[in-house]
């Protein structure tokens, strides 16, 4: 177990190194950040001064070396645009994204797994067909359209939810959270629902496929024959054995939503990570993009690690090596 953890850590460092090099190389093609900072009619001397202030007067390898050195000391560089430490900018926005993503994932799981189990256990029924058709709609609808429709219906037309923003926040452990206030929940529902639809549909379909596979197994009939209730068989014996692919997808989707909730965040003016990434790309703000993508890589590695651990718990026959 310890060896496995160490191996994963090592893997993570390699991934992070690769990400930082790739972003550095990529960003050298996306335009010179200094022109996003100085006024259009700046003179050569003013541009040179700006370059010096931003540390852009050095060669690419030198800039990378400075970045690496700073990182070892916990300094991830300063945003060109905001003139603040890039890591602070990202950490400030992370809670907002985590909130909508966690709520969205819970919504997906709570809706998708029971429906998936039902549809898998009773494949012939009309209700099951309706569920499957619904899931197709969930996969195919683009989130920007869903978001706009939800705003149009629930905010503009019926006035039950606010259209945008985060609402009241409460400071807990030094960061602001909306999930601890009623007004915050009022604001979370629509963006989380928008985010959850795609994942909900995918989880539902995977759960159903797994259940259809499992219900044909002999141990299911045996459990039923020895007197276990239908519900108990479905969830205790069936779902548990169908869960491995569901957990895998759940983990991947979780990472995906944290990293790329951009569109939903923009539509609902939700002050999360995604908007920061888009703004930074527009403004060629390299320090923020590097740290952001490194954070995303870390999140993916960690989630996959946790999912691997979960496997052993769900199916004791699996061992991590």
């Amino acid at each position: 177990m310890l060896g496995y953890t160490l191996k994963r850590l090592l893997q993570m460092i390699v991934v992070l190194g690769a990400v930082s090099v790739i972003v550095f190389l990529m960003m050298s093609f996306t335009g010179d950040p200094v022109f996003m900072v100085v006024p259009i009619d700046a003179t050569e001397a003013e541009i040179a001064q700006a370059r010096r202030i931003l540390g852009l007067d050095r060669s690419m390898p030198e800039q990378y070396a400075i970045f690496l050195k700073g990182m070892l000391q916990g300094d991830f560089g300063r945003s060109y645009v905001f003139r603040e430490p890039a890591l602070d900018l990202i950490l400030e926005r992370l809670p907002a994204t985590l909130e909508i993503v966690v709520v969205a994932m819970l919504m997906s799981a709570v809706v998708a797994i029971p429906l998936g189990v039902y549809a898998g256990a009773n494949p012939g029924r009309t209700e099951s067909r309706a569920i499957m058709t619904g899931s197709l709609v969930g996969i195919s609808l683009p989130s920007f359209w869903v978001g706009m429709m939800l705003i149009f219906l629930f905010a503009v037309k019926w006035n039950v939810f606010p259209s945008s923003g985060r609402g009241d926040t409460v400071e807990v452990m030094g960061t602001r959270w909306s999930i601890f206030t009623a007004d915050g929940w009022h604001h979370i529902i629509l963006p989380s629902l928008t985010l959850s639809l795609g994942t909900m549909a995918i989880l539902l379909r995977i759960t159903r496929a797994g259940m259809m596979e499992v219900t044909r197994q002999d141990y299911m009939k045996f459990a039923r024959a020895k007197g276990v209730s239908r519900r108990g068989v479905l969830y205790g014996h069936g779902l548990r054995n169908a869960l491995i692919p569901v957990v895998t997808i759940f983990g991947l989707q979780l990472g995906d939503l944290i990293a790329f909730a951009t569109i939903t965040e923009t539509i609902f003016a939700w002050p999360g990570l995604g908007k920061l990434l888009i703004d930074s790309i527009y403004r060629a703000d390299r320090p923020v993009i590097v740290v952001y993508l490194m954070l995303v890589a870390t999140i993916f590695v960690v989630i996959n690690f946790l999912v691997d651990i979960l496997y052993t718990w769900i199916d004791p026959r699996i061992r991590v090596k």
Partner: peptide, 18 residues
């Protein structure tokens, strides 16, 4: 001041009175 990047959301926020 509230930053609302998406133009349609800005319009919605005005119409809802936010």
């Amino acid at each position: 001041f509230r930053p609302i990047t998406n133009p349609a959301t800005r319009t919605a926020a005005l119409l809802t009175g936010e």
